[in-house]
Amino acid sequence: MGKLKILIVEDDPVTRSLLEKKLKKAAYEVATAKNGEEAVGLVSGSFFDVVLTDLMMPGDVDGVGVLEHVKERNVKTEVILITAYASIENAVEAMKKGASDYLTKPINFDELMLRLDRINTMKSLAKESLDLREAMDVTEKNAGQTIQDLEMVIHRLQHGLSDIKRVLNEGSIETHERIERALGILDRLII
């Protein structure tokens, strides 16, 4: 599992560059946007594993707007909201719209790293289960095809065998004629 690709959306330049520095130091792949509009543009162009966005931002697109756009674009992107302590209720509302977590300001970086680790673990587990299911699907598909082919073959053979039985039991025909006909059926049966 590669490192997560993270988009930071934060209007405050100090917080933004601090976040960028910390996350880059932790070897995450990082992009930044200084407002919601810019974030929307970036998300439309490429996939991010995580979008870390401030909830309150000036301009037309706030944190909830970013969240909605991100989820619209790809449900697999996780969104973490950054919120002032006073607006936790808004963050909870946003979680109902699909945000995976929120952090309160001032940002505790240990906490942020733990959340990202957790997302990383979840994504690895999800990928692993997806891989396993994929492997199971391929196996199941192959086994299924073989079993179904056999089912059809057996059905055809059973049909043929009962035809042979019927012919051999036919009292009104000479024995050699019966055998001849039975052999004819057998010939068609064995490919």
Binding site: E140, A143, I147, Q148, E151, I154, H155
Partner: peptide
């Protein structure tokens, strides 16, 4: 897809 009825139910035809 990996199930079969041969030997289980002769009333069905595949």
């Amino acid at each position: 897809s990996t199930e079969a009825l041969t030997g289980i139910c002769p009333r069905f035809v595949p």
